[in-house]
Design a protein around this nucleic acid. Structure first.
Lengths: 228, 228
DNA sequence: TATTTAGGTATACAACTGTTCACTAAAATA
DNA sequence: TATTTTAGTGAACAGTTGTATACCTAAATA
């Protein structure tokens, strides 16, 4: 997650107050096995299984840890799921930063964004696999968390477009509605991308093209949108 | 499924050939408990659980049948899932017929279609719950089946629009791309509709409005689309 | 240094899982 | 009517599940 030792949570700030140099090895190890658990869950889903079909014992087994150790980190499988949602949120925000940094040659900007996105999904396929799966299927609390994360993402995207002065004739509300649609479409496309047959470059190109056209439709609609 | 006795599959066509009047009570009963099994699965998912978290024994218990009886109908939970996908396909096609029959007052047609859809999702919430959940989460084979069903639906929709001479400047390919986007958006909306807090008319109205605007965006984009 | 804290292990338990098998009884066939 | 088929049963199986318990040991604290 973070390589900054200062980011490690500490329950008691230590009585000597300020400048406790670093809490040292205990919480480090804890954090590490926690990540092993999260990683294990993601690995088990790589074959295409949904999160809700995983069992606690499977996960601890994959993580190389005794079943009971699980409870030192999460009280529940659901809680682990929520942690995964949070990690996905970070991943998504990183994507946004990546696209933002790309500066726009406005002609091909949409297509190149799609290509960036496609590669990004492949690089982070474990997170997207989880998100795409749990979005509709997970427990209600996980579903809700994912939806909140998506809304967050859509809002950031809308704010970005506002700052870049794109589609300035749209109200902020309308911009958010549009970005919501884009996010939905992106998530759905992620699911398609992940299920692409491995070596089939033809199918991949086709899918990309469809995706580009769909986004183009949305942007075109936004451009000719009138008033509120 | 079908009330037509002639639709019942028969392995040996009977040697007396033609006009076997009706195979009678045995296959009727079989069909009935088969539907009990499908129903049981849908019922268990009503609380929000995903299909992949159901167990064979749970389903037979809910259906009021011994566990071993399951194998007389499906070899697998996966196979039952595929049967559910097929049932969903029928449901979707029924929806299309319903909307088609509505005849279009083209001004408010989009909004009224959305309302129709919303009610339809609520009426058939069990099927949509399953579809929305298994679309990303289920086993690979179920996911694939759902995707095929969605594509079918999108294509029928495109053909319908062609027949009604809507957006005549679009190529058939482009129409299909657009309908694909609409179907995706609809499916996502279904998930939102199902998770609506029960009595909240305000939230419902808001969601409907957002949904309408998103579709309007797509249609607007389609109207101003140029060439291939 | 002595004491406390807490991440992790091993073991045990009752509950549940998917699947098999021999069986019944009623319907379909000959 | 006699025979065969077959949807459904009930008991048994080996595995797996989630959770509780007592315990160990290294790090953190006093």
């Amino acid at each position: 997650m973070s390589t900054d030792p200062a980011a490690v949570a500490k329950k008691k700030p230590a009585r000597g107050s300020a400048s406790t140099p670093a809490t040292g090895k205990r919480s480090e190890r804890k954090q590490r096995t926690r990540e092993h658990l999260l990683d294990a869950a993601l690995s088990l889903m790589e074959a295409g299984r949904g999160f809700s079909s995983l069992s606690l014992r499977e996960i601890t087994r994959e993580a190389g840890v005794a079943p009971a150790a699980f409870y030192r980190h999460f009280s529940d499988l659901d809680e682990l799921g929520l942690a995964l949602v949070e990690a996905c949120g970070l991943t998504l925000r990183r994507l946004l930063r990546e696209v933002r940094r790309q500066e726009l040659p406005p002609t091909q900007m949409l297509r190149s964004s799609v290509v960036t996105y496609k590669d990004y999904v492949k690089d982070n396929h474990r997170y997207f696999r989880f998100a795409a799966g749990a979005r509709g299927g997970g427990s209600p609390s996980i579903r809700k968390a994912i939806r909140i994360e998506e809304a967050h993402f859509a809002n950031e995207m809308a704010q970005d477009m506002r700052d870049l002065n794109m589609l300035p004739h749209l109200s902020m509300d309308m911009l958010q509605v549009m970005c919501g649609l884009v996010v939905t479409t992106m998530m759905n496309a992620a699911s398609d991308i992940l299920d692409l047959p491995a070596g089939n470059a033809q199918a991949e190109k086709e899918m990309t093209e469809t995706f580009v056209m769909q986004l183009r439709l949305v942007f075109l609609g936004a451009r000719s949108w009138l008033s509120s």
